[in-house]
């Protein structure tokens, strides 16, 4: 390493890589929140989330292409992706709950759904990488020798707002109360007059909408959109969600940042080809020490 980097560069590189990692980590955190929401209420790994994220970016791109303007395109993307989330739940997952199917059936269903969405995207939007407009690019911001992209700052701020917003929904609204009740005991909740199916659909809507926010922001940062974009990012975001304690929203953010920063440092000190599995190595280590993740709650039984 020392052969490549001169000594006074090392400090700059380390700090620069920290910022690179934080920006990347924020992207993971945004997607991880969606996994966490659904897992929190259903104890289900929603494998279709990566495809939903890709869907949102394509929808935004479609409306930008149709000259809707940037802000309406983003809003439409958020709403439509939220509806897609509800559709997935209503068409595929709700019937399974009605049948009292085994949890693994839901897992396979989400894998199937992911297949359907991703391949439909490939058919309608082609597989090539498409250019995505840079929404929030106001140039670079310099701190001494360290540079930060303005989009990174926007991503950071929006993620925080989203997180606070979701936390408020869960803690302060009636819907949030119903969500928490359903999470703890859905049968008891429905006996208390809570329409659990509605609550779950609402959760899927929030999950889809958060995926859309992530999709628009991250695509705006990298300016690339393609149908397979959600796969690897989705897996790593999922690892981040579990790392922080799945079902706990602030855990997702912490998990995302940890994964992002460690990936960035792995690329620095080991080489970029190692970075993809760093998330999983850290995840396994954390799970062995703390089986429910950093901030996780106990008592998770379902698959």
């Amino acid at each position: 390493m020392s052969g490549i980097l001169t000594r006074n560069c090392v400090a700059t590189v380390i700090i620069q890589q920290l910022f690179n990692g934080l920006a990347l980590g924020m992207a993971y955190a945004l997607i991880a929140v969606g996994y966490s929401l659904v897992f929190g209420i259903l104890r289900l790994i929603n494998f279709s989330h990566g495809a939903v994220y890709a869907f949102s970016a394509h929808i935004a791109l479609l409306f930008v292409g149709l000259n809707f303007g940037i802000i309406p395109a983003i809003i439409l993307s958020i709403v439509l992706t939220g509806i897609l989330g509800v559709l997935i739940d209503k068409t595929a997952l709700e019937p399974l709950r009605m049948n009292n199917s085994i949890p693994m059936a839901s897992l396979i269903t989400t894998i199937g759904m992911s297949n359907i969405i991703q391949n439909l995207l490939m058919i309608f939007f082609n597989t090539e990488r498409k250019s995505f407009p840079a929404f929030f690019d106001f140039g670079m911001i310099k701190f001494g020798s360290v540079q930060v992209n303005s989009t990174q700052v926007v991503m950071f701020v929006v993620s925080l707002i989203l997180l606070v917003f979701l936390t408020l929904i869960i803690n302060k609204t009636k819907l949030g109360l119903a969500m928490r009740a359903t999470e703890q005991n859905s049968k008891a909740a429905s006996l208390m007059g809570i329409n659990t199916n509605f609550v779950i659909s609402a959760t899927f809507f929030l999950g889809g909408a958060s995926a859309a926010i992530a999709g628009v922001l991250i695509s705006g940062y990298y300016q690339i959109v393609y149908p397979g974009m959600g796969f690897m990012v989705g897996l790593k975001a999922f690892a981040a969600a579990v790392l922080g304690g799945i079902g706990v929203l602030y855990g997702s953010v912490v998990g995302g940042l940890v994964v992002g920063v460690s990936e960035s440092y792995a690329a620095t000190f080991m080489g970029s080809s190692y970075r993809d599995s760093v998330a999983f190595i850290i995840l396994i280590l954390v799970l062995i020490i703390r089986p429910t993740g950093l901030f996780g709650k106990k008592d998770i039984k379902k698959v």
Partner: peptide
Amino acid sequence: KGTYLSIVTLGFGEI
């Protein structure tokens, strides 16, 4: 248990 075990195996495959 349960889901967490599945996640470890998922990580194993990637590693």
